[in-house]
Amino acid sequence: MIEVKNLSYFYEAEEGTPEKVLDNINLKIEDGEFVAVLGHNGSGKSTFAKHLNAILQPTDGYIYIDGVSTSNDEMLWNIRSKVGMVFQNPDNQIVASVVEEDVAFAPENLGVKPEEIRKRVDDALDAVDMTEYKNHSSHMLSGGQKQRVAIAGIIAMKPSIIVMDEPTAMLDPIGRREVMKTIEHLNSKYNITIILITHNMDEAVKAKRVVVIDSGKILIDNTPKNVFKNVDMLHKIGLDVPQVTMLAYKLRENGVNISDDILTVDECTQEIYNYVNKG
């Protein structure tokens, strides 16, 4: 479980006053949740993410991972192996030239025994469906495959939480789909807590809970349906809503009386069908 209490963070400015990037954040995330984090550029999402595995430590306030504070330096490696982190550019996360050797990197660092590393590597590659590529050289893979290898490299630490900072931003549509499928699979089958930072609203809809950050503060924290209802407010802070939600919003504006919490194409079709049949 993640508990964030009164978290504030300042970046040291070269001159003048330090810049406040996170402003009194309070948040609780239970085991097995799938949370999307939204916010426009520079709102502090990545800074927040880096606090969860103690890459950054709070200027003020606390973060507890299963009851252990991230400010406790003695528990640093424990926390980092519990909270995995995946970044945007898969090329800059892969350390070794061969897939399985890269996946082995984290357990090697943790001093896991060789037989156990073997098992973890095989399991991790299986979880992201990359077993057949285990002896491939990593730079020959597609973007989506590379990102799945990066995810496997994290899974090999056996984390209970994975934080993903825009993992699909550099991928083509096929790669995006592969990675999203993998993320959902990890959440539903392995019960790994997922925190997905994204600019893609169709991905955010897949989460069970959406947290919107604006200028370092939590603005909304609710289910996708309740979040994307607020089309005007989201637009004001520079965020989009899913395309179908936008369509439904425009239809409502023009007097078509359909529901205001439509997130998927199916829901939208059903609503319009009902509306047309009624009228």
């Binding site: 980092r80 550019n89 996360q93 082995a104 990197f105 060789p114 590597v121 490299g153 630490m157």
Partner: peptide, 26 residues
Amino acid sequence: KRADELATAMECRCYRGGEGRTRLRV
């Protein structure tokens, strides 16, 4: 930029030098 990101990614994967490190292959 790559070096910076790679260093962070390595830290996230618990890299802390050669001490206490084991290997996949014996």
